[in-house]
Simulated assay, not measured.
Amino acid sequence: MSIDKKLEDLFQVIVQEAKDNQAFAKKLEKLFPTKPAAKKRRKRAPALFNPVIVLEEGEDQLQTRLETLDIYQLKDIIAEYGMDPSKLVMRWRKKEKIIHHIVETTAQRAKKGDVFR
């Protein structure tokens, strides 16, 4: 009999004993405590709107909509649409600078591929 088969039989006996014997099952639980599954937590709230769609109405419209948001909401847009690969913008504290970054990045993305049209 191979070692694999012997181990398999041993664990089958342990499982069956745990099902039949509550005291044995409690001893196993003490040896191997189970933790509740950790919920995956989202660090940022979802973005309030897609800046590319608003940009279609005009750059000034995008600028106006962004100015109504607070810094955390602006950073939510940056995080959701991947506008900060270097992770520097998330450290900025000036609202105007963040808005400028969003407008510039969105405009660049909207123009990307125009050469092929």
Rank of each mutant, 00 (worst) to 15 (best):
A18D: 02
Y72K: 09
R42F: 15
K43T: 15
A18G: 01
P85M: 07
L66N: 00
A25K: 14
D114V: 14
K112W: 11
D114G: 11
D9S: 05
Y72H: 10
L88K: 14
Q63S: 06
Q16L: 15
H100F: 10
P51G: 04
F11N: 03
L31T: 06
E57P: 02
Q108K: 13
V89N: 03
P33Y: 13
K30Y: 05
S2M: 11
I78W: 00
K94I: 10
F24D: 03
K26A: 15
K40T: 14
Q12E: 15
E8K: 05
R117P: 05
D70T: 04
A45M: 13
Q73N: 08
P36A: 14
K112M: 13
A110V: 06
L66C: 01
G113W: 03
A110T: 06
E104N: 09
P85I: 11
E104A: 15
T34F: 11
A47C: 02
V13P: 00
G82C: 09
L62D: 01
E96R: 09
D4T: 08
L66E: 00
V103W: 00
K5F: 13
E56F: 08
T34W: 10
D84L: 05
K30F: 07
M83R: 04
D84W: 06
L48D: 02
T105M: 09
F24H: 03
D4Y: 07
Q108Y: 11
A18H: 01
D60C: 06
